[in-house]
Simulated assay, not measured.
Amino acid sequence: MPTPSQPIGVFDSGYGGLTILRDIVQTLPQYDYIYLGDNARTPYGTRSFETVYHYTLECVQHLFDRGCRLVVLACNTASAKALRNIQQLDLPTLATGLDGPGLDGPGLDGPGLDGPGLDGPGRRVLGVIRPTTEVIGNYSKTGNVGILATRGTVTSESYRVEIEKFFPNVNVFQEACPMWVPLVENGEYASPGADYFVQQHIDRLLQQSPDIDTILLACTHYPLLLAKIQQFAPPETTILSQGGIVSKSLVDYLIRHPEIEAQCSKHGLRTFLTTDSTEDFDRQATVFYGEPVQSEHLAL
């Protein structure tokens, strides 16, 4: 299948971003998409800011080289650790025209997937944290929100910073769940063996505040653990996944930026790239994406 000329790029460190892509495609099926999973170098959650930034930038550059005008970092760790630098420091040299700071950059305000800055005819890189933090306070009646994420996302404090901008009266409690991504990627997300690790981190989060009534799954792998999370969380707790929120925000972004929307090709084509084994990727991706995929290997 030939690569579309100007698809929307979706990047993740592995498979999790396919849960975001799935919801985006359901909402905006007419566009062409390229998904790039950096499976050979996953997980990102335990790596340094500098390493995540370097890996993410390399993958974004490849998506630009494949014709993408718009790239979504469907990875919380990459959004937290790399997006701001890419938007502010690299886009002026990577793309034609200047792109202003956007989603997830600490200290930056603005609606939806972007934010204020210099609009230009160049390419854009967006993330997944800002759309979530703009709405999360609307779900909580107690003003106490829990974040379940990788250690890298928690350490970055991105969710605290961004939620403070939109909901200054909301209290944010975070819990890093280092075992959850390996459980999901090894197919153990529905097994009895996952119960201990899921319950452990739910209990640790709720010990920080018994008034938490809304929990955000701030890692794109975690929706596969949703049944387990619901099992161990209080029944009245609202559990939020990011896919639906991000897809709605992308719709709004494209409406507000018709100059970008007009450049995105619309043939309904999907291309999947992985930096690791295509056989392994295709088998795992079916679980995350919800239908069979056929990937191409990318050597970085």
Rank of each mutant, 00 (worst) to 15 (best):
V60W: 11
D119V: 13
L205R: 06
L118G: 03
V10H: 07
A227R: 05
P101D: 06
I229T: 05
Q26D: 14
Q207C: 04
L250A: 08
L240F: 04
P43N: 12
P92Q: 08
K141L: 12
L254T: 13
V246K: 08
G244I: 08
R22D: 07
K248S: 14
D195E: 15
P101V: 13
D213M: 00
N76D: 10
P116Y: 15
R256H: 15
H267M: 04
G105I: 04
S247P: 03
D276C: 02
T27F: 05
V135M: 12
G244N: 13
Q26N: 14
H257W: 05
D99R: 10
R84M: 11
F288P: 00
R66I: 02
P168W: 08
W180E: 10
L224Y: 08
G17T: 12
P234A: 08
G243M: 03
P168G: 06
P43Q: 12
D12Y: 04
L18W: 09
I212A: 03
L206Q: 10
E296R: 14
R283G: 00
L91F: 04
Q231Y: 09
L217N: 04
L108T: 11
D195R: 03
N186K: 06
E236A: 14
E185L: 02
L225T: 10
Q61E: 15
I260H: 03
T278N: 07
Q174T: 15
V246T: 10
L254C: 08
E291W: 12
D203V: 06
A149G: 02
D203Q: 14
Q231K: 13
L205S: 07
Y159P: 00
L89E: 15
V154Q: 06
V293G: 01
V251P: 00
S191K: 01
G290H: 02
R160K: 11
Y189F: 12
R151T: 14
L36T: 09
L206S: 04
Q174G: 00
A285E: 07
L113S: 01
G37M: 09
A80V: 11
L98Q: 10
L183I: 15
T51W: 12
D38F: 05
S5C: 01
R41S: 06
C68R: 04
Y15P: 01
Y15H: 05
H221E: 09
D12A: 00
E291A: 14
W180Y: 04
Q230G: 01
G16E: 06
F197P: 00
Q61K: 15
I255A: 12
